[in-house]
Simulated assay, not measured.
Amino acid sequence: MMMIADGEADRLIKLEEVKRRVGLGKSMIYRLIQEGTFPSPYKVSPGASRWSNREVIAWIDDVKDGFEGKRRKI
């Protein structure tokens, strides 16, 4: 596991948890990864990918205000 500054280990989470947290489907998540705007998964085995919990939280924090702003302008 990845270590962070305060000594806690970062959890690696499955796609299902990522989808639930960010409210996006698999296709949109992978499109954003291709565009370079969403954290890439880590390949933990040939058939398994996991995302950094901290990277997903940081992405949510970075885009939340932007998404809310777009929704309000419509």
Rank of each mutant, 00 (worst) to 15 (best):
M1Y: 05
M2W: 12
I4D: 09
I4Y: 09
I4W: 03
A5F: 11
A5N: 09
A5H: 09
D6N: 15
G7P: 05
G7C: 04
G7Y: 01
E8C: 10
E8T: 12
E8I: 04
D10M: 00
D10V: 05
R11D: 10
L12N: 03
I13A: 03
L15I: 03
E16I: 05
E16D: 14
E16S: 11
E17S: 07
E17G: 01
E17I: 02
V18M: 06
R20T: 07
R20I: 04
V22L: 07
V22R: 05
V22Q: 11
G23P: 05
G23E: 06
G25F: 02
K26W: 03
S27I: 07
S27V: 09
S27F: 05
S27E: 13
I29M: 04
Y30W: 11
Y30T: 02
R31G: 03
L32Q: 14
I33F: 07
Q34W: 00
G36R: 07
P39M: 08
P39D: 04
S40Y: 04
Y42T: 11
K43L: 10
K43Q: 12
V44Y: 11
V44E: 10
S45E: 08
P46K: 03
G47Q: 09
S49P: 05
R50M: 05
W51C: 09
S52G: 02
N53V: 02
R54P: 03
E55N: 10
E55G: 00
E55K: 07
E55F: 03
V56P: 06
A58C: 05
W59V: 03
W59P: 08
W59I: 06
D61M: 12
D61C: 11
D62E: 14
K64N: 11
D65W: 09
G66I: 15
G66N: 13
F67C: 12
F67K: 11
G69D: 13
G69T: 14
K70V: 14
K70T: 14
R71A: 10
R71P: 00
R72W: 04
K73R: 15
K73Q: 15
K73C: 08
I74C: 05
I74S: 10
